[in-house]
Design a protein around this nucleic acid. Structure first.
Lengths: 189, 189
DNA sequence: CGTGAACGATGACAAAAGTCTATGTTTTAC
DNA sequence: GTAAAACATAGACTTTTGTCATCGTTCACG
């Protein structure tokens, strides 16, 4: 499984990373069932996770205690509450597994050490941050400019695997749509 | 005016920046009227702007060619289309001034040189990116979880100066609300 | 297995948001 | 200073989205 992480890093940094195995040794392999809480808002986010297999949900609660999903992240991607992880402040978001997962976790201390001792690792962080930011920008623009129906069409076009893989309830909360409305609109396509 | 930029950088990096003046010399001072286009989608974003005075709008168009505002940035903050600036790919967003502005712009080449030769400058970039990301996350969570009325209340609470300073049309597009609806809801508070 | 909980679809209705038109006001540009 | 353009508000109406209740179906788990 760690091959997935190894490939991911090599693809991004090329072969000039002498210390690849040293870097990899800082990650802890975690196997989880579905519906496992990895982070609760209020806690300090201790890990950055690399998802080798499975799917994570990043979510908050609205004023009526409904879950609203800020992001869904699948295998071959990184997931964390970066703002808490970076600053040490309490997290404002929750993270849980929505499928059985194979994760590789690196904690804050090892992350800092890697950042200092392996110059290229700093690049990895920048890439995680940039990718997260890119994703956020894209997502804001969809919310500001698209109707519920168009957001569903967008999802079907750009993340079609999610449509078949995840529950309607989760997808609806990811799109900011009521689940009944999601069901209704989906049937009219 | 450059004092604003100097203070901004010093506040974040402390006094251990020997090369402060060298860094500052890489910025070009720009004075603009309102409604000046700084970046058009499709172009490569050449500059990162520091806003010493004034206000910028980052926006895209929806399918009916209405402007939808991804972000509004005021003085003492940085603004750019970071993804294009960083990668050299065409920008997917537009930027314009919404007030007369005093800006300090640094181009990609000088930015790269600074990143390499002034270690602390790298931190500045990371901070810009992190601040942008934090802002985006916050904004997504507002969109996914709040109604139009609650978004207006949120704006009044957390960015009250914007309410008086900017046009309703712009604020409405920032909140993802039709301008007529914005006017109606505002009067009912 | 079987059973209780979660899920998905649907109809009827309510509420929220969007559209269009009209009118008066403010701003901008010459 | 003045005319044109952009802006703000309001009413009437439409469309979209949300809510609630119901009813099969599926799925997790003892």
């Amino acid at each position: 499984m760690i091959e997935v992480l190894r490939n991911h890093i090599m693809k991004r940094l090329g072969n000039d990373l002498d210390n690849l195995d040293k870097v990899l040794s800082n990650f802890k392999h975690i196997t989880t069932k579905r519906n496992v809480q990895l982070l609760q808002e209020g806690e300090i986010c201790k890990y950055v996770y690399f998802i080798a297999k499975g799917c994570l949900q990043v979510y908050v609660y609205d004023k009526d205690f409904n879950e609203t999903t800020r992001d869904i992240v699948i295998e071959d991607n990184w997931c964390s509450e970066l703002l808490s992880f970076g600053s040490g402040n309490p997290a404002t978001e929750n993270i849980r597994t929505v499928e059985p997962c194979e994760l590789f976790a690196i904690d804050r201390q090892n992350f800092q050490i890697m950042m200092k001792t392996v110059p290229q690792f700093d690049k990895v962080y920048k890439q995680i941050l940039e990718a997260s930011y890119a994703n956020s920008v894209y997502r804001i623009n969809t919310f500001v400019s698209l109707s519920a129906l168009d957001r569903i069409k967008w999802l079907m076009e750009y993340r079609p695997t999610l449509m078949t893989r995840l529950s309607s309830k989760l997808l609806a909360s990811y799109l900011g749509i009521n689940k009944d409305v999601f069901s209704r609109l989906k049937s009219k396509l």
